[in-house]
């Protein structure tokens, strides 16, 4: 069976992706440690968790800026654009493929090529994650890092508390995304194929 290779992930995207992955995992770990802090001995000391969380958060923020600017300069942003009227149908077609089609050996409804890097479900989730959730978690996180910038009270509730809830909810949404993202990355030709793509830059498919 011939292998079809397309160079879809240039080096800057792979560097951005690996930094994003490492910092995000560390942020999840330290964030959970802070949320469930106890007076007893935990997995990590509170002050270490705070420092590590802050450092990773700043790295993630700069890395996000690098991603946005990179998308504008390189043209990679085009993969996140272009919403057609048949978007709902396309989403359902892709969902049906994951629910039943792939078990019936149906071919991918939206083949990956130079013009289409993501299937409709990937596209909508990546746009939501990168252009809604990430800005919200970064802004709320920076607010918590510099609490003097946050409004004191909103409707008799501390602005700090509201900011933290937004931060926690976004963190949770991103954690769920991460789990699903990691799992869907095993849906390539072989479970490790798509992971390999993010290392060598080539999307591989058997023809």
């Amino acid at each position: 069976m011939a292998t079809h290779r397309i160079y879809l992930y240039p080096i800057w995207i792979r560097i951005w992706h690996i930094i994003n992955a490492i910092t995000f995992l560390l942020l999840v770990f330290t964030g959970i440690a802070l949320h469930y802090a106890t007076t007893g001995t935990g997995l990590i000391k509170f002050e270490t968790a705070v420092n590590l969380h802050n450092i990773c958060a700043l790295l993630l923020t700069f890395n996000y800026g690098f991603f946005v600017i990179g998308n504008i300069i390189s043209g990679n942003g085009k993969y996140y654009k272009g919403w057609k009227k048949d978007m709902t149908d396309n989403l359902w077609t892709q969902a049906k493929f994951y629910i039943s089609g792939m078990f019936k050996k149906e071919s991918h409804p939206f083949a990956i090529n130079k013009e289409r890097k993501f299937n409709p479900l990937q596209k909508i989730s990546y746009v939501a994650v990168m252009y809604i959730c990430m800005p919200l978690i970064i802004i709320s996180g920076l607010g918590l890092m510099f609490p003097e910038t946050i409004i004191g009270q909103i409707f008799k509730v501390s602005g700090l508390a509201l900011t933290d809830f937004l931060h926690q909810i976004m963190a949770f949404v991103l954690l769920i995304f991460l789990l699903v993202h990691l799992y869907t990355c095993t849906l390539g030709d072989k479970p490790g194929t798509l992971f390999k793509s993010m290392i060598n830059g080539y999307h591989e498919e058997h023809e």
Binding site: H35, Y36, S158, A161, T163
Partner: peptide
């Protein structure tokens, strides 16, 4: 009660959430 004016990470959480 802390949450009227402040928020203390680790101390404030919602059991429901």
């Amino acid at each position: 009660v802390i949450m009227t004016d402040y928020f203390v990470i680790g101390a404030n959480k919602s059991p429901f959430l």
